[in-house]
């Protein structure tokens, strides 16, 4: 796809912002009342905010009761402030200079986009002048290592993998970190098999991978990132909770935010666990991994259009 085409596409998906969801609520000069706030709640719910939607709406109702809301602009401001408060975090690029190599363990449920995200991360780090080594510790899914290998070739990154079926993931991780130290690379990214957070034995396996890495290079992994599927709903909170319990997740990456999903479950995760969101995946191309910006994220939610189930 050419750059122009991509640009056109991005514009098309933001066109929705012009016919802003919030503005549409106020169309026809409607006054602020319970009905309107109820619809606003619905708007927030459809962006997967879950219980946060109710909490935010209740707060708006309270503000309205005190007579502090006089029109669309006030509501927009209040909403924006409230959502931004909940999304607060330290921004800035991840520090890759302190450790050598910096070992990053990437985890997540099946199909959340781990492997693709790793390819994008590798691309990003290499663009920043770092040398990257990938460890294919997803030894469960058929051809997962092949997939990573193809990405590594495209990226020009180094790869450590096993060629036997169902190898021990911890062993692959160990080899990858050892190779990373020996070859003096800057970053070691370790891909793991997708696993549902409710599978205790698989979560224990992940913990073992982590322990083995620590044994190989004390203090590592320096980061453990959880890749979430942006189209997931409230279950994402459970995922974050369980993965954090098992392997002490230090940051989140939200994939697949290039569709119509808004990823509002992040509010619930923030509230429950306070994990920082590092990157968002916004497309299939290698370069489509952006640093998370709370402002843009919140704006996308406020500007989401209303969808109705009936045609």
């Amino acid at each position: 796809m050419s750059l122009f085409q991509r640009l056109a596409q991005r514009l098309a998906s933001t066109r929705g912002a012009l016919a802003d969801g919030l503005s549409s609520l106020f169309r026809g000069g409607r006054p602020i009342d319970d009905e309107l706030l109820g619809e606003l709640e619905r708007l927030l719910y459809t962006a997967d905010l879950g219980p946060t939607a109710t909490a935010v709406t209740a707060e708006l109702k309270r503000l309205h009761g005190r007579g502090e809301l006089h029109g669309e602009e006030d509501v927009r401001q209040a909403l924006h402030t409230m959502l931004m408060e909940r999304m607060e975090q330290d921004s800035g690029e991840v520090d890759l200079d302190t450790h050598s190599p910096t070992v990053i363990l990437v985890v997540g449920v099946n199909g959340s986009g781990k492997t693709t995200t790793i390819a994008k991360l590798a691309h990003r780090f290499q663009e920043a002048g770092k040398s990257v080594l990938l460890g294919a510790a997803d030894t469960y899914r058929a051809a997962a290592a092949d997939q990573l290998e193809i990405w590594a070739e495209r990226n020009g990154a180094q790869l450590v993998r096993q060629h036997t079926d169902r190898a021990d993931p911890a062993a692959v991780a160990f080899d990858a970190v050892t190779a990373g130290v020996a070859r003096e690379v800057d970053v070691v990214l370790i891909d793991t098999a997708g696993r549902l957070h409710t599978q205790k034995n698989l979560m224990d396996e992940l913990d073992k991978v982590r322990r083995v890495i620590d044994k190989c290079l004390p203090g590592a992994p320096h980061h453990t990132w959880l890749v979430l599927d942006g189209t997931n709903g409230q279950n994402a909170i459970q995922q974050a909770r369980h993965f954090t319990e098992s392997v002490d997740v230090s940051g989140l990456i939200v994939a697949k935010l290039d569709g119509t999903a808004r990823g509002g479950a992040l509010f619930g995760i923030k509230e429950a666990l306070g994990l920082p969101v590092l990157y968002v995946g916004t497309g299939e191309q290698l370069e489509l991994l952006e640093v998370f910006e709370p402002e843009a994220f919140v704006n996308a939610i406020v500007s989401a259009g209303l969808e109705t189930p009936s045609d």
Partner: peptide
């Protein structure tokens, strides 16, 4: 469809 899909299931 992924069972964990949120509200977006409708649109997709």
């Amino acid at each position: 469809v992924d069972a964990m899909t949120g509200q977006d299931a409708l649109q997709s």
